[in-house]
Deep mutational scan, measured.
Amino acid sequence: MSIQHFRVALIPFFAAFCLPVFAHPETLVKVKDAEDQLGARVGYIELDLNSGKILESFRPEERFPMMSTFKVLLCGAVLSRVDAGQEQLGRRIHYSQNDLVEYSPVTEKHLTDGMTVRELCSAAITMSDNTAANLLLTTIGGPKELTAFLHNMGDHVTRLDRWEPELNEAIPNDERDTTMPAAMATTLRKLLTGELLTLASRQQLIDWMEADKVAGPLLRSALPAGWFIADKSGAGERGSRGIIAALGPDGKPSRIVVIYTTGSQATMDERNRQIAEIGASLIKHW
């Protein structure tokens, strides 16, 4: 067993022997301040990774656009098919120029040779490549099948209805392509620590998230040296922004954090800054 596999296998073990965790309302004060600064709703939840206990939450059962955070769930569904012998990570998928959609920095470079399922998941999570996500959605049967996968996990809230990039439209009061912070946090925890996926697939999923290259201005910008984070960000229309993450000190994750916002007129930089400040408060009061 590799060191990384050992780390993920012992996530519940280490967490069980940690000192009790206590909620700190100071972080919620910052979440509410972010709402004021952005002029928009902000949803927040913080779960203990081992027990699933909610440590703090704000608007945990209000719907927010998922945006690209759905790509972690998508690759979880792909990995479940791999575990069941219905898919192979090494299978190569070929596609054409007509398949390319807006923001496809990886797939646009491989029109000639195609990409493997493993490479597509890596591109979808680490670079948020939209064509990679659409190609992977095709392998599982489309958005409705991802929703069905989530329902089978016990998540009857999260739903995907459309493809990239239309799913980022974020129309107010439109339930399409949305989740709730509580539902997303619980589902992410199941994917990373539950028995739904094999140990190898859980490790692969967290490795992809740990290698995320496009979430630097968010929670990662607030992390002290030595902290662990595996995350996936999302951005959408109407001032929408979000991030889902597993993080913790001492090089291992111990909490799940989900943050979503929508309806702001603020710039992307300002949305990023507010999420980073929430992260800084979380870490300060850990």
Rank of each mutant, 00 (worst) to 15 (best):
H24C: 09
H24I: 02
P25H: 08
P25D: 05
P25C: 03
E26N: 15
E26D: 14
E26C: 15
E26H: 14
T27E: 03
T27G: 02
T27R: 02
V29G: 06
V29T: 02
K30Q: 13
K30P: 14
D33A: 01
D33K: 01
D33S: 02
A34N: 08
A34V: 03
A34L: 04
E35W: 10
Q37V: 11
L38S: 03
G39Q: 15
G39H: 11
A40I: 15
A40H: 06
A40M: 14
R41T: 13
R41A: 08
Y44T: 04
E46P: 06
E46D: 14
E46C: 10
L47N: 03
L47V: 13
L49T: 06
L49F: 07
N50E: 14
N50V: 08
S51Y: 00
G52F: 06
G52L: 07
K53L: 08
K53H: 05
K53A: 07
I54R: 05
I54V: 09
I54W: 09
I54A: 07
I54N: 07
I54L: 08
L55F: 08
L55T: 10
E56T: 14
S57Q: 10
S57P: 11
S57V: 14
S57D: 10
S57L: 13
F58L: 00
F58N: 00
F58H: 00
R59Q: 03
R59A: 03
P60D: 09
P60N: 11
E62Q: 03
R63S: 13
P65I: 01
P65C: 04
M66R: 01
F70M: 01
F70V: 03
F70T: 08
K71E: 01
K71R: 01
V72K: 01
V72P: 09
L73S: 08
L73N: 14
L73K: 05
L74N: 07
C75G: 15
G76F: 09
G76V: 02
A77S: 00
A77V: 00
L79A: 01
L79R: 15
L79S: 14
S80P: 06
S80A: 09
R81S: 12
V82N: 05
V82D: 10
V82H: 06
D83A: 10
D83Q: 09
G85D: 15
E87S: 13
E87M: 04
E87V: 05
E87Q: 11
Q88P: 10
Q88W: 12
L89K: 08
G90Y: 04
G90F: 01
G90D: 01
R91N: 05
R91C: 14
I93V: 01
I93T: 01
H94W: 12
H94F: 07
S96W: 15
N98W: 00
L100G: 10
L100P: 02
E102L: 04
E102Q: 03
E102T: 08
Y103I: 10
P105T: 12
P105V: 13
P105G: 11
V106F: 13
E108F: 07
E108T: 01
E108S: 00
K109E: 14
K109R: 15
H110G: 01
H110C: 00
L111H: 03
L111Q: 01
L111G: 04
T112E: 14
D113G: 00
D113T: 00
T116K: 15
T116N: 09
R118C: 03
R118K: 00
R118N: 01
R118A: 01
E119S: 15
E119P: 15
E119T: 15
E119C: 15
L120S: 01
A124N: 04
A124F: 01
I125C: 00
I125K: 00
T126G: 03
S128E: 00
S128K: 00
S128A: 13
S128V: 04
D129V: 00
D129T: 00
N130V: 07
A132R: 02
A132Y: 07
A133R: 03
N134D: 02
N134F: 09
N134K: 10
N134C: 05
N134A: 07
L135H: 06
L135I: 12
L136R: 05
L137M: 15
T139P: 06
T139C: 07
I140G: 11
I140W: 02
G142D: 08
P143C: 10
L146F: 10
T147V: 03
A148V: 09
F149R: 07
L150F: 13
L150N: 15
H151I: 08
H151V: 11
N152Y: 13
G154V: 03
G154Q: 04
D155L: 12
D155Y: 09
D155A: 04
H156C: 03
V157P: 06
V157Q: 05
T158F: 07
T158N: 06
T158M: 02
R159Q: 03
R159C: 02
R159N: 00
R159K: 00
L160F: 11
L160Q: 03
R162E: 09
R162D: 11
R162S: 08
W163Y: 12
W163I: 09
E164D: 10
E164S: 01
P165Q: 10
E166Y: 11
E169W: 05
A170I: 09
A170G: 09
I171G: 03
I171M: 03
I171P: 03
P172D: 09
P172C: 14
P172L: 07
N173P: 08
D174A: 03
E175P: 12
E175D: 13
E175I: 12
R176F: 09
D177Y: 12
D177G: 08
D177W: 14
T178C: 04
M180C: 05
P181L: 03
A182V: 10
A183W: 06
A183H: 06
A183D: 06
A183F: 08
M184Y: 03
A185P: 05
A185C: 01
A185I: 06
A185R: 05
T186H: 08
L188A: 08
L188S: 11
L188V: 09
R189W: 15
R189N: 15
K190M: 02
K190F: 15
K190C: 15
T193F: 06
T193D: 04
E195C: 00
E195L: 01
L197H: 02
T198W: 07
T198Q: 08
L199E: 09
L199C: 12
S201A: 13
S201H: 05
R202N: 11
Q203F: 00
Q203Y: 02
Q204D: 02
Q204E: 02
L205N: 01
I206A: 12
I206V: 13
D207G: 09
W208D: 02
W208V: 00
M209Y: 13
M209F: 09
M209V: 06
M209G: 06
E210Q: 10
D212S: 12
D212E: 06
K213V: 14
K213L: 05
K213D: 14
A215N: 03
A215F: 04
G216Y: 08
G216P: 09
G216F: 13
P217Y: 04
P217R: 08
L218K: 01
L218P: 07
L219C: 10
R220C: 07
S221P: 07
S221F: 13
S221A: 09
P224C: 05
P224D: 12
P224S: 07
A225K: 14
A225R: 08
A225M: 02
A225F: 03
W227N: 10
F228T: 02
F228V: 02
I229E: 09
I229K: 02
D231A: 08
K232R: 13
K232I: 15
K232E: 14
K232V: 15
S233Y: 02
S233N: 09
A235V: 02
G236T: 06
G236R: 03
G236M: 03
G236A: 04
R238P: 04
G239D: 10
G239R: 11
S240E: 13
R241T: 07
G242D: 12
I244F: 12
I244N: 11
A245N: 08
A245E: 12
A245C: 13
A246S: 05
G248K: 04
P249V: 08
P249L: 09
D250K: 03
D250W: 03
D250P: 04
G251D: 08
G251Y: 05
G251P: 08
K252A: 07
K252W: 11
P253T: 05
P253S: 11
P253Q: 06
S254I: 13
S254H: 06
R255E: 07
R255N: 10
R255D: 13
I256V: 11
I256R: 01
V257D: 05
V258F: 07
V258L: 08
V258K: 01
I259N: 12
I259S: 08
T261R: 12
T262P: 05
G263Y: 15
Q265R: 09
A266M: 15
T267K: 14
M268D: 07
M268A: 01
M268Q: 05
D269G: 06
R271C: 10
N272P: 15
N272D: 00
R273I: 05
R273K: 03
R273Q: 11
Q274V: 12
I275A: 12
A276H: 11
E277N: 13
I278T: 13
I278Q: 15
I278H: 14
I278R: 11
I278Y: 13
A280N: 15
A280T: 10
L282D: 07
L282G: 05
L282S: 04
I283W: 08
I283V: 10
I283D: 07
H285Y: 06
H285L: 03
W286I: 04
W286K: 01
